[in-house]
C-alpha cells in the first residue's frame, strides 16, 4: 500500500507540450492534451519523474488536498494462485520487489491476477515503481510474463521489454563462465 500526499502540478504558461513528462510517467498519469500536459489526480503518485525531465521547469510537486491511497488487498485474491504465480516467476512471495515502496512480490502478483496487464496498470494499482523507478521494472515484467500476458512495448522509449533473469541464462553460458557464479546463484535462489 502506498499513501500519496503530493501531486504534480503543471504551469500551463510554461508548458510547451513537448511530451517528455508523458514518456517517463510510470502510471501514465500525465498526458499532453491540447498541447498542454494534464495530470490525472487519481493516478499521479508524485514520483517526480516529470519534474526531473521537464526542460521548461513547468512542473512542481505540491501537497494534495486529500491523500491518495493505492494498494491491492491480497486477501481478496486466492492465496494459492498468488503463491503459484510468484513461484512460477521465481519470486518468494514475501520478498520486496521495490526498494522504495517496499511492495511485496505477492501484491504485484495479486494486481496481475486482478487484471493488471501492463506495467503502468501494475504501478497504478500497487504504487510499485513510483519511487526511484530504476530497479523494479524487470521483476514486474517477469511477473506479467509468468501470468501468460503478452508484452507489447510502447512505440516510444517509455519502457523496453527486458525481463532477462538468472533463470534465462543458458546452461552452456553458465558453464562457460563459472567465475560469475551463475549456476551457484540459481541453486541458492531456488533453495
Amino acid at each position: 500500500m502506498r499513501v500519496v500526499n503530493y501531486i504534480s502540478q503543471v504551469d500551463e504558461t510554461k508548458c510547451t507540450g513537448c511530451k517528455r513528462c508523458e514518456i517517463v510517467c510510470p502510471p501514465a498519469a500525465i498526458k499532453v492534451i491540447n498541447k498542454v500536459a494534464t495530470v490525472d489526480s487519481e493516478k499521479c503518485l508524485a514520483c517526480n519523474k516529470c519534474w526531473h525531465v521537464c526542460p521548461e521547469d513547468a512542473v512542481s510537486i505540491v501537497p494534495r488536498e486529500t491523500e491518495l491511497i493505492v494498494g491491492v488487498d491480497f486477501e481478496e485474491v486466492d492465496a494459492e494462485a498468488i503463491e503459484a504465480l510468484c513461484r512460477k516467476a521465481h519470486f518468494f512471495p514475501e520478498q520486496f520487489v521495490c526498494a522504495c515502496t517496499l511492495t511485496l512480490a505477492k501484491e504485484v502478483a495479486a494486481a496481475i491476477i486482478k487484471g493488471a496487464k501492463t506495467p503502468e496498470a501494475v504501478t497504478a494499482m500497487t504504487g510499485v515503481r513510483s519511487g526511484c523507478a530504476i530497479y523494479c521494472m524487470g521483476p514486474i515484467l517477469r511477473m506479467l510474463k509468468a501470468h501468460g500476458i503478452k508484452i507489447e512495448a510502447p512505440d516510444t522509449h517509455r519502457w523496453y521489454d527486458l525481463s532477462l533473469s538468472l533463470w534465462d541464462v543458458p546452461t552452456a553460458v553458465a558453464e562457460k563462465h563459472p567465475e560469475y557464479y551463475l549456476k551457484d546463484d540459481q541453486t541458492e535462489f531456488n533453495e
Binding site: V97, A133, I134, Y135, C136, M137, G138, P139, R142, H157, W159, Y160, L162, S163, L164, S165, L166, V169, Y180, Y181, L182, D184, D185, Q186, E188, F189
Partner: peptide, 17 residues
C-alpha cells in the same frame, strides 16, 4: 544503461551473478 538494464542487474540476478 537504461533503467530496464539496471533493473535486471539488481532485481533479476544475484549479487555475484
Amino acid at each position: 544503461a537504461r533503467f530496464e538494464t539496471r533493473s535486471v542487474y539488481h532485481g533479476n540476478f544475484g549479487n555475484r551473478s
